[in-house]
Amino acid sequence: MALRSPLLFLSLLLMASLAAAELVVVANPRSGIERLTQEDVTNIYLGRYRHLASGLTAEPVDLAGDAALKVRFYRALVGKNLAEINAYWARLVFSGRTRPPHVAENVEAALHYVAAHPGALAYVDRAQADKRVRIVFELGE
């Protein structure tokens, strides 16, 4: 289909970029975290450094299996596919170092976990972030 006007093309581009910005990282409102940087989120999810400024230990939550949201999250965060993320964790787990993230079966379970644990963080679509959690980082895709 040919685009009829440059304006329509531009607005489609804009919509596409808005849709792509919908992936967010949420935290428990009692965590004391207002904002995190991409580096912070990477350090927390890759188990490099989970000490939060508030003194709490961050507890990242991952989605189970090959969930599409999980694939998008790791691609946006570190440019890796799930096989690479698994290989990364195989190295750390089997050398007895850091623990991988807590695994939730679905987004609702992830949100429930974050709401119940002050140090917990999860990634969800912006539309799924409800009053139980606070958005602390937005991922550009």
């Binding site: 189970a64 698994n86 195989a90 089997f94 623990r99 991988p100 993230p101 807590h102 695994v103 976990y113």
Partner: peptide, 18 residues
């Protein structure tokens, strides 16, 4: 489908291998 799927880190005990 994914390795991490069967390993809930909240669980107290886990067995895995390579």
């Amino acid at each position: 489908n994914a390795w991490a799927a069967g390993h809930d880190e909240g669980a107290a005990f886990s067995v895995r291998g390579f």
